[in-house]
Design a protein around this nucleic acid. Structure first.
Lengths: 361, 361
DNA sequence: CTGTTAGCGCCTTCAG
DNA sequence: CTGAAGGCGCTAACAG
């Protein structure tokens, strides 16, 4: 026969029953050493490579797979080191639990411009789904998962009934950063924000309080800055956390034509991610400004950016791998029937070389 | 009953047989519209979310999962945009085939320093495995997969019997790049290479021909450069394709102390990846050298590096997404029983602003 | 310690 | 067009 050998083939070859053969592989029961050896020998002669995963899965009702929904296409999502480090922690943690990670691209606009949920999310078998970039209001992905009754862990988003949550204390982080700037003497700052919701363009925000902000990190960080003692004199929304977007924002914000009276100019730029901040630094230098002598720049995330050279970005560091691990633990809890969990991880201000005293006019 | 409803529950509710209910969902057979409606209605009242993946998988013998073996830990692998863009093409292609991608970290050194294959590779169910960074000699991962009789697609590596292969014509790319430099007037170049095999340290290579090179892209690109009309006066091996590694290499190579006679100094540095090349450019500038006036720099891959500012790296571009798609097609071919395939994709020289005429002494 | 039995949920013949 | 039956490969009771 040319078909792949099954456990019952092995059992027959070894002259034992199927269940005995099963025990010989799983080790989950009393079995004589000699019998086990005989079974393994039979397996070797038949070229049997161990219990078939499908049979075991059907039997156990478990896929051994966690679906990880990334924000977008792989390429765009993973240009952000934040996603990658988190994923690293998640994969390591789940790997120890014998769980594999299946990547599921987030939503995409189809030909007609409508949002479409990736088919994998609709049909593919998974024990738990992790939305690493949260869920927005009436998120169709969440609806699909609810219908399929797949348990969900949300990273970094709004709490959602029935879903576990892993968040960070970003409000506090931004508050500390604001205090740092205030203490240095800054009063007027510009804010380079993350996107407010899906499918946004870059641009000025006149009244941040009037905007609907559908993405939690954006809202938390923006509100925390507004609530600080600093005066936010300009808010520029970016379409994504990318170096280019940060550079674009800086070119707008630092344009001298925008500040007829130099005394109105912001003395610091707070970017809501390190990639954005890196773009701000690069663009500021291209425009002939020194950082931090002419303008201070701060970021958020605490990722390592080799290309800023010897500069160390002032930023709020979040524990990215721990966040990934926490997501993994939340998955574990759900699978063990321990139910929905919520965690908020701490962040920490890291003072680097890109913030200093404001320039004297 | 609190257990999840099954197809037979739905069939009972709808007053039809299981097989009829099955047809109502799969649409793979003749069924009366009215019957189908009745079945769907029953499903709705029971909260049945469609056929269970496990049952279907066992029945079909397919997992619907492709295991993608990345080089290392997620974090380290995905710092390289090359991996990410390839993965993007692969995920998109497989998603259309209704196949999910499961990430499998490559090998890791365990506590004792020995190589260990990730347990997911040993036990997790997958229809095909893709080794995106190839296989080395006596690769234990390949042995595991062979034993489990999982079909394998290799990206960018040595051909291996029984495995499909997707490669690029990197020898030709390097040859064209060498000609470009030669035509500009360069004669002496330094080579910043990718690692020769696993677990290497950074360092000078005195006699490249004497080294055992276990990784195909490294070997191809190194040999192609040696075979060109250029004189490779220095070879520096890096431990990984990273900006920092490129910068380290450049600091060594450009150290004036190394070239007592300036006429011996290489006038161009050829780095075997764009990340390495970016590091070379940054380090050269830190050392007060202009690129390309004082030293020309070229890379390989053709990825977009926002942080080189207005410079465009001279490089050999490879079609990364197409490579990912080709990997997906190779997977498809294996699953359709069309057997092992081999593809070599073309590359193209892209002349940017980092190469120019050699300096006049 | 080992064998027997009964499914896990589905799909696909094959009859009707 | 619909129903009945068998089996994909495995494991967990239970009985010996």
């Amino acid at each position: 026969m040319s078909r792949r050998p099954t456990l019952s083939d092995v059992a027959r070859e070894a002259g034992v029953s199927v269940s005995t053969a099963s025990l010989a592989f799983s080790g989950a029961g009393p079995i004589a050493d000699q019998t086990r050896e005989r079974v393994h020998a039979a397996a070797a002669t038949l070229g049997y490579a161990g219990p078939n995963a499908l049979g075991r899965q059907l039997r156990s009702g478990r896929h051994g797979i966690v679906g990880v929904v990334i924000g977008d296409k792989v390429k765009r999502s993973f240009r952000d080191p934040v996603s990658i480090q988190m994923l690293d922690g998640l994969v390591s943690t789940l790997s120890e639990l014998r769980l594999g990670v299946m990547l599921i691209p987030g939503m995409e606009h189809d030909e007609t411009g409508a949002m479409k949920v990736d088919p994998l999310l609709e049909t593919s078998g998974m024990d738990v789904a992790v939305l690493i970039w949260g869920a927005h209001l009436d998120d169709p992905r969440l609806e699909v998962l609810r219908r399929r009754s797949v348990p969900v862990v949300i990273g970094e988003g709004n709490p959602s009934p029935g879903c576990s949550l892993v968040a960070i204390d970003d409000r506090r982080g931004v508050a500390e950063l604001a205090e740092h700037l205030y203490a240095l003497g800054h009063r007027r700052v510009a804010n380079v924000t993350l996107p407010f919701r899906m499918g946004r363009q870059a641009g000025w925000i006149e009244n941040p309080r009037d905007e609907e902000i559908d993405w939690t990190p954006t809202r938390n960080r923006l509100e925390a800055l507004e609530e600080s003692r600093l005066d936010v004199v300009a808010t520029y929304e970016t379409p994504a956390s990318l170096v280019e977007s940060g550079a674009d924002a800086a070119r707008q914000i630092l344009d001298p034509a925008r500040w007829p009276n130099p005394a109105d100019r912001p003395t610091a730029i707070v970017a809501q991610s390190d990639l954005l901040a890196a773009g701000v630094v690069l663009a500021a230098r291209e425009m002939g400004m020194r950082v931090p002598e002419d303008v201070s720049v701060a970021g958020f995330d605490g990722v390592t950016l080799p290309w800023l050279g010897t500069d160390l970005l002032t930023t709020v560091t979040q524990p990215l791998e721990a966040k990934g691990e926490a997501l993994g633990r939340a998955v574990e809890a759900l699978l063990e029937g321990r139910g929905v969990t919520e965690v908020v991880l701490p962040v920490e201000l890291r003072v680097g070389t890109t913030t200093g005293m404001p320039p004297v006019l």
